[in-house]
Amino acid sequence: MGWRKSALAAAHPLAKRDQGPLGSASVSASEPSSSPFPLRQPGGAPIVSGRFLRRARLLAEAIFASHAGPPPRQRLDWLMLEAEDYLARGGAQIRFTLGLAAFAVCVLAPLWSWRLRSLASLEVNARVAALERLEASPLAAPLLAVKAMLCVLYYEHPDAAREVGFEPTCLTGPRSPAAHASAGVGS
């Protein structure tokens, strides 16, 4: 829970601080989508388990690590908020499937590298190596499932997009005069 609170607190400052020139054309890209969405069930339990989010963060730190280390903490906080919102809307079957996949990866990756330690206890470099071995193995499917979801979200962050040379000129949907001319049903 502590992590969840710190992530929420970090999210909005990130929108201002960790945003480059690209962000000026795509301000919404760094604002978490999750803020208005109630992420708790009526009984108070979170829709997406903290355990899944911790595992997803472990994997994200490795998947998006550069030679300099994992991505900035604030960007990972933002990513986890996005992941939580995404899965909360994705339905129980999807949450179960991805939860199981993340669990499988965290168990299999160290074993596949002959390490009898938990994935969390490995340094980022060792985690990268373990996951690379798993990705090249016949047991890659769970890793690819979690990686796919994380990639879709991660590269929407303007700084992450810019780092790989992507300029989403239209993917943030600039409003044009044409959009107002055809306002759509019932508007």
Binding site: A62, I63, F64, A65, S66, H67, V124, N125, V128, L131, E132, E135, A136, L144, K147, A148, M149, C151, V152, L153, Y154, Y155, E156, A161, E163, V164, G165, F166, P168, L171
Partner: peptide, 25 residues
């Protein structure tokens, strides 16, 4: 497809993933 979807289908973890993701353009 958007870059995240492209990156998702490219092999690699960490630096090797980023190197491939840089080829998106």
């Amino acid at each position: 497809v958007p870059p995240g979807v492209l990156a998702a289908t490219m092999p690699g973890i960490g630096p090797s993933h980023l190197r491939r993701a840089e080829s998106i353009p």
